[in-house]
Amino acid sequence: MKRFLIFSMLLTGLISTSAFANADLAKSKNCMGCHAIDKKLVGPGFKEVAEKYKGQKDAEAKLVQKIIKGGGGVWGSIPMPPNAVTEKEAQELVKWVLSQK
């Protein structure tokens, strides 16, 4: 019965698997080598990124390009290198990062 209830909730969208899928994507693309969810490693924690860009209309597009092309100067002297991701993967990662609270 419990499995049926969980399965039903997944089907109706009450439970999202995207949070898990995007964390897995972040791990598979080595984002976690420099970032953590809630603390600074080499780069800022994802929660800090979400807070900084909260409410900015162009945040998603800006961050997608930073993931793809790299960037620097926003979080300190260590630049973020370009990453081997597709635009779709970068969009998924950005949506996930911005959803962190």
Rank of each mutant, 00 (worst) to 15 (best):
C34Y: 02
K66G: 00
K39N: 04
A36N: 10
I78Q: 14
Q65D: 06
K39L: 01
A21S: 13
A50I: 06
K88D: 13
K66N: 10
I15K: 10
G33E: 14
L14S: 09
H35F: 01
F4T: 13
A84S: 13
W75R: 08
V42Q: 14
I6V: 15
K57Q: 08
V85K: 09
S77G: 09
I67E: 05
Q100N: 12
G55M: 09
P81W: 04
C34V: 02
S28W: 04
I78Y: 09
D58H: 09
R3V: 03
R3Y: 08
K27W: 07
G76D: 10
V97L: 06
M1H: 15
G33W: 06
L5V: 13
N83H: 14
P82F: 04
A26V: 02
E51L: 06
A21I: 07
I37S: 07
V64C: 03
C31S: 04
M32R: 11
E89G: 04
L5P: 01
G73W: 06
P79G: 02
E60P: 01
K29C: 00
N22L: 01
P44R: 00
V42G: 04
K52C: 00
V49A: 01
F7V: 09
L93V: 04
K27L: 07
V94D: 09
G76T: 08
I67L: 13
E87G: 01
D24N: 13
A19Y: 14
D38N: 13
K101M: 01
A26Q: 08
L41G: 01
F46I: 01
G33N: 14
G55E: 10
P79Q: 07
K101E: 15
V94H: 11
K66Y: 08
L11R: 11
M80D: 05
S16T: 12
A19I: 09
Q65S: 10
K29A: 01
K27S: 07
G33R: 12
K54G: 01
L14T: 08
Q56L: 07
T17E: 11
T12V: 11
G71Q: 08
A19M: 08
A23H: 15
E48A: 13
D24F: 06
